[in-house]
Amino acid sequence: MDNFLSAAAADRLASHPAVADAARFTAYPLELDGIATLLSGTDLALMHARSDLPWVTPPREPAIWQAERNAGLALVSEAFVERFGKKPGDTLRLPTPSGVRPVVIAGVFADYGNERGSILVDRTHLKAWFADARVTNVSEGPGGLSWSPDGKQLAFAMFVPGEGKSFASMPAAPDGAKWAAKPIVIDRLNYRGDGQGYAEQGHTHV
């Protein structure tokens, strides 16, 4: 089941008298070169003005904050850089329902809650690429929603899947080789439940 907030519901939240601005966010699971990651979009200009991001490599191109000029630009997380071996200036080819969209990495931000890495673009273009105006579309449902005392912020907790760090790395399989499945390494006290099997690896973040 999809977990998302309709555009109409988002409009109602944004129109609340206590809400000065509403930064809408949409995310889709994505595969690049057969590796899972996350493609997300938000109002980059509003994000930059209101909160910004913890930067590893801040963007030097002012166009990244302007929706009319940033269709070919993206920000990526530090985990994405490490996982895919990319750097600012590299071009990514993003598969979308409307075709492959090339974007140039304009900056790198720190995000320690998503080990799969993430790509962030302006939501104006993401809506057009996916023909989708929903505010969120994530693999896990948010829970524990709570307004801040001043009514300006909404907090929630959500499970973020992630692979645990292995104590050893395996060499690549030779051409034509068919190796057995990777072993399951257990380093948690609660690792499975009756009727559900092994628990998915990851963490719950606020």
Rank of each mutant, 00 (worst) to 15 (best):
L94K: 10
V135K: 06
F4P: 13
H203C: 02
P17I: 14
A49F: 12
A131W: 02
G99R: 02
V206F: 13
S6Y: 03
L92S: 12
S77V: 06
P102L: 09
P29W: 05
N190Q: 13
G85R: 03
A131E: 10
R116E: 04
F130H: 04
W179A: 14
R24V: 11
A131C: 01
M158Q: 11
V100T: 08
A27P: 01
D111Q: 06
H16Q: 14
K152S: 15
D175Y: 00
R134W: 11
P95K: 07
V135R: 09
G72N: 08
D2F: 09
T124V: 05
R116V: 00
K178H: 04
V135T: 09
R134A: 05
T124G: 02
S40T: 00
G151M: 03
A177N: 01
G113V: 03
V108A: 03
L53Y: 11
H125E: 03
L145Y: 07
G34E: 12
E140H: 15
F84C: 09
T124D: 08
V104G: 09
Y191S: 13
D194C: 10
H203A: 07
D150K: 11
T96L: 06
W179I: 07
G162M: 03
A181K: 09
A177W: 00
L32S: 06
A8S: 07
T42K: 07
H48M: 14
A23S: 13
R24Q: 12
G89Y: 01
L30R: 02
R123E: 04
A110Y: 13
T37D: 02
